[in-house]
Design a protein around this nucleic acid. Structure first.
Lengths: 122, 122
DNA sequence: TTGACATATTCCTATATCGTGATATGTTTC
DNA sequence: GAAACATATCACGATATAGGAATATGTCAA
């Protein structure tokens, strides 16, 4: 079997760095812009932008609305929230880690001071 | 060019559903377990577990420590936090969306009540 | 209708998977 | 040092990309 398709879910879709860039561009544009604006902003070939937008649309990370010959793409925050909610369940692991690192830094600093004091006494 | 390698960063690594499962198993095990425990917990073939762990290690999502013939794998929360921080910058987009949905729901409900009242008057 | 513009789709190729099964490496114990 | 155990790695096959170039589709304006 091969890799999971990029359009299988939001996680697979945002694995591609350029698609994260694309979401960033949409965010800069207040979350709602047409393709031409994105092409100008990113400086990529237009077909590439359209293709990446298609993947983002298939997983629901963006939505489209026709407006004359333009197509307005909008960020779908709720889909991004699914990613957020998943990763947030691991919050305690970086909290713990930060606490451990901080405590160790304090220990080291304390020891460092003591060592310096000892040196001074010589 | 092909897809970005799975070991290029945390986003690529967690695109694979089984690697998210694997992280979940580690979390169930207090964030630190050996391979045998993971194999038993997940019910996958051992080589598959080892290979997915290798990818997670390459991107820094887990760390290893030898302990006799065992190898203890630990979650690296700080790496998951990078994903969290990225997605969190989009928070305003789901906040906005939720507010809009809520407001629309209230409008619809209000209109619904008015329509019912009108019907009653007939 | 024709042309100009905006966007999507198709064809191509190189590449990096993922799962499976077999095997290699490394460690402990007797 | 041989056996038992824990873990990693290799070889292989099917597959789904991502980018580039060319082209198709759709819409407005004169």
């Amino acid at each position: 079997m091969a890799r999971s398709p990029t359009n299988s879910d939001a996680f697979a879709a945002i694995a591609e760095p350029r698609r994260r860039e694309l979401l960033g561009a949409l965010a800069r544009g207040d979350g709602e812009r047409d393709v031409s604006w994105l092409v100008a902003d990113l400086g990529w070939p237009q077909p590439q932008v359209s293709k990446h937008l298609a993947v983002l649309r298939q997983v629901g990370l963006v939505t489209v609305a026709r407006s004359g010959k333009r197509r307005m793409y909008s960020l779908n925050g709720l889909k991004l929230r699914e990613v957020h909610d998943w990763v947030k369940t691991y919050e305690r692991f970086w909290d713990h880690q930060l606490r451990r690192i901080k405590e160790r830094a304090e220990r080291v600093e304390r020891r460092g001071r003591e060592a310096t004091d000892t040196d001074r006494q010589h």
